[in-house]
Amino acid sequence: MALDYPITDTLAAFDAWLEPTHGAATRRLYRQILGRFVTWLQATHPDSPATVANLSSRDGARYREWLRAQQPTKKPATINTALAALDTWGGWTVVAGLRADNPFTTLGRVRDVDTERAPKALSPTQQDALLKAAGHGRHAARATGIVSLLLHTGLRVAELCALTWGDLVVGERSGQLRVRAGKGGVARTVPLNIEVRRDLWRWAVAQTALADDEAPDARLWWTAAHAQTLMGWIQQESMRPVIGSQKGGPLRPRAVQTVITTVAYHAKITEPLVTPHVLRHTYATQLVTNGAPLTVVATLLGHQRLSTTAIYTKPSSQELARWTDTLALD
């Protein structure tokens, strides 16, 4: 087992290993993080080469504390992303046979007051306003499809962009979608409720001739016949992106964010700042509020650790503020 590779010499192979399960932006970020880590190692240990074999768990812990001490202060999420990159790379060294152990597997994440609160989510009233605004825009069917999918399935934006019609099973009374390669390469199946099935049908109708022989109002109904028609079309267009660009390819995450930002503006939602991930948080928050077990929520979100899902059981900033406001009424 060769254990003396310089860390920088492993980055190309590590990137290739990540490619099937991680997007280009994530891989680029991980390379940058590892490059900064090597620079730190060389500065703090000038007499010790930055090689795979020389790393220890203490290096990870010391780097974490160095990151926490930086000015201006780095957000916990930024530091934790760096730690996750190191942990992922450390796991790869074991898979690649460069080490017998991952030196960063026990590296604890950073927490502060904010991370002890549930992520911000939209209220039911805000969700209704968002969907209503999506339905009145220039590209109403597409915008509604995007908002509905994110709100009712909790997909990550990259998962939405990678979704093809062949990943869907859509019936009159039930449906599901298959996330083929979620974060960390984890596949999962997510049910499709009646709202999102109907919105997907309307989006399909808006861009095809599926129901051109029906009256305008009837085209937008959702019946068993429509479900059968949609599934027949899906079998023929299985590789077609569910949310495609004007050129026919998959929509990029930045374009999805633009759609969400525009719809939120017209819905007059200023707090919280509406992003695709806030819609994912909203989906998770509703599941927990309605009594779903954490194991179910974790499975639907594609979380590999229950500790990640447990954050949704914490009080949100809005809840804390609401209860504090009640004190002024006494």
Rank of each mutant, 00 (worst) to 15 (best):
G175W: 01
G302P: 01
P124C: 04
Q127R: 10
T223H: 09
R99H: 03
D101I: 15
Q304E: 03
P250A: 10
A187H: 07
F104P: 02
D59R: 01
A25W: 05
P315E: 12
P20R: 13
D167A: 14
S174T: 08
A12F: 06
V297M: 07
P124T: 05
T81G: 06
D128W: 12
T44M: 07
V94Y: 06
S238I: 08
W233T: 04
Q207L: 09
G108N: 11
T153F: 02
V205N: 13
E116V: 01
L251H: 04
G302F: 03
R99G: 02
A181W: 04
H277Q: 02
P315Y: 05
W89P: 09
E214I: 03
V95C: 00
A328E: 15
L107G: 07
E237W: 11
A53M: 08
F37K: 03
S174C: 00
R142L: 07
G35T: 12
V263H: 06
R180P: 13
A140R: 11
T299E: 15
L306A: 10
L294D: 11
P46M: 12
T21W: 09
V147M: 15
L86A: 05
P49T: 05
T125K: 15
Y30Q: 06
A218M: 09
L163V: 00
T308E: 11
L320F: 00
T93L: 07
Q304S: 13
L55Y: 13
R202T: 03
L34N: 09
Q304D: 05
W165D: 09
D217M: 03
T326D: 09
Q70H: 13
A143N: 13
P250N: 03
T51M: 04
T189F: 07
A328T: 15
I79Y: 00
H266W: 01
P46C: 11
E237V: 06
G249W: 06
L67P: 08
T275N: 05
T44V: 15
Q207I: 13
H22D: 11
T309V: 06
L83T: 01
Q257A: 12
V256H: 11
V186D: 11
